[in-house]
Write a protein that binds this DNA or RNA. Structure first.
Lengths: 207, 207, 207, 207
DNA sequence: TATGAATGAGTGTTCATTCAT
DNA sequence: GATGAATGAACACTCATTCAT
């Protein structure tokens, strides 16, 4: 088959691309997005400057490619609650979702660090994509709250503000347990604590 | 009094300083810290480049001067809980503290935006100061939790993780209601929702 | 007499001028001409920036004023040899002239240092004035050599080049004994050595 | 050989480096070290600013690269006197050394001009390197004088001061015949005159 | 396709001089 | 006359991107 050459070339291209992305993730994590120059990037992955620009049109673009992967995984973890008969209990589903989000971020600490440590305000596009995910997450939370209200399992609450609180709660543990932490993440422990906090609050009952 | 001239000069200097700071706050908020050059700064406040450097030794320094004010106000709002007999109920104090922090940040939305949108990772000093405040806040929360446990008013919780959740909760509403919001902040509403969420959680009781 | 006021004012002006010049000499010597800014100058003499520019039109000008004094003194020391009957012997006159030049420069080590340590190539005018003195000195030497030849007291020499040698000889001891030296100048010793070297050379006679 | 490309690239790089150095020598000579900005340098050699900084890390560095060559040549010319049996007569060796130093400097008039016209007081490193050569030269002279005394071929002289005179003598002819001169240097004539002056002095004998 | 030398607009900062008070 | 705040052209240097080979 004469396609062999074409396929091999495509595979080589893909391998090169991955090589650049892998190196970039490491370097961005180590030096920050703003602190990383194209020089560092190409030095780290062992290709020439020009080659870099053959795979990515700009420094920003590499970053977006990394972001693609992470956001896709996060989006996949953020499934709607399944309320059909026979589905797992909501509490179990919520735990799975929280654990999933934490696990995805823990699985790419390098990029997670960059995203949470630099707001990239000067890179409009990356910022916009993060904001977009942030909105997705908030919408998911608001939707879940609406369902809970419909089911009568929630206290009467200020749903909009509380949605922000919940998103913040997640962000709080991500920053403290993944971004700023050296030790490995104990997903179960953290998910338990988060759900317990969000569901029961702090107060001892019956007072 | 022959000091009139000296006084007027000092006042003029102070006014100039404020003029630069005010313009800087706006420009930093609009373009981000990294996206703002000295050129933009001086264009925005209508002084020459050299004049700028007569009042601040560097671009960084203007930013720190802005930070000074905000961090001082935040520090003042973050008072320890007063548990002496006759003091206001703890719940009232907590509400005052949360409201206070929100009000301070709402009072300087421009700078708050910069701080929450960029991690300033390349400005070591500013970053360190924010991290320092963050640590103060986390320490305050942990201390408050310890008191609550001692008083027997808290559920048994994973205090370390929950402290991260609480800090995140605050951050969540700040980002959503101040940083990303266009409309004015309803401090009372938000403080109520935050405290209700943190104290009671989401679940309807007694179920 | 109503002129008192005018005179007093003129005296005050002159005093101010001297105050600036004295401070400038010290600062230039300590930090070099290029290393000295107007800020250092005005700080050292305790007047305001604007005041400085009322007395001297530029930083360069202060330097030239200092130069004036030194060059005037050097010019005065560089008297023509007196060959009229009854005049002191030429050797005595030469010694007096060499000693005179050395003494003048030793008397203003600060400025001498600046002049010999920085060539001020970027300050065209000061450089030109130094070059002018340099030419005067060379011309004086050439003239003296011509007289010596006429009197038959000189070896047959390449007068132009030897004139350069003699000027260089003087410069050599000035740099070594005044500019780069910490200890005081022993005018007599140096003048003796210079004249001995220039007159007799190094070789033991008659060998 | 497949190395052709690599070799050609290395040669091109070297050529570019020389192009910058050559232009820099000319511009420094014309405008002085302090009077020359990177803008002038890049304009003179027809490369972009960035290109300049690919070859030299700073303006200072180009200057030092120029200095390297000149100081190496001067150091090579300043060989110790060879007093072993069979060596050339000392007078011949001295002449060769003086001629050598003059020829080296005449061979790079541009840089020699910069070095003698500016003290580079604000470029600590270049200044230190010149001072170092100056000390080497003075040490060489003092050593040569000590040998002459040991051989009994010198008059009794004040060796320290006379060493300064000799260094100055050389400097005198360099400044007059190379730095300030437009016409070509007649090395033989100048070397003869210098050695004659230093050895025999000015006086007609037998007086 | 891979290369890396070349580019130049951009950066933060300085400082001799001016001028309103 | 004295003041010192204001000025802005100039500085050395960086770095994301291009392009000839």
């Amino acid at each position: 088959m004469s396609d062999g050459r074409v396929e091999r070339a495509a595979a080589a291209r893909e391998a090169r691309r991955e090589q650049i992305l892998d190196a970039a993730r490491v370097v961005f994590a180590a030096r920050g997005y703003h602190g990383t120059g194209v020089s560092e990037l190409v030095a780290a992955c062992g290709v020439a400057r020009g080659t870099f620009y053959q795979y990515f049109p700009s420094k920003e673009a590499v970053f977006h490619a990394l972001l693609d992967v992470l956001l896709a995984r996060l989006g996949a973890a953020l499934v709607p609650v399944d309320r059909r008969p026979g589905a797992a209990p909501v509490s179990v589903q919520l735990r799975a979702i929280v654990s999933g989000l934490l696990a995805v971020m823990d699985g790419d600490r390098a990029l997670t660090r960059v995203l949470f440590r630099e707001a990239l305000a000067s890179d409009g596009a990356a910022d916009a994509r993060m904001a977009h995910f942030h909105r997705d997450l908030a919408a998911w939370v608001r939707h879940a709250l609406a369902l809970g209200v419909a089911d009568g399992i929630l206290r009467p609450i200020d749903r909009d503000v509380v949605a922000d609180c919940i998103v913040g709660t997640l962000r709080g543990v991500i920053v403290a347990r993944i971004v700023d932490a050296a030790e490995p993440l104990d997903v179960d422990r953290v998910a338990d604590a988060v759900l317990g906090y969000a569901w029961e609050g702090l107060s001892a009952r019956g007072a």
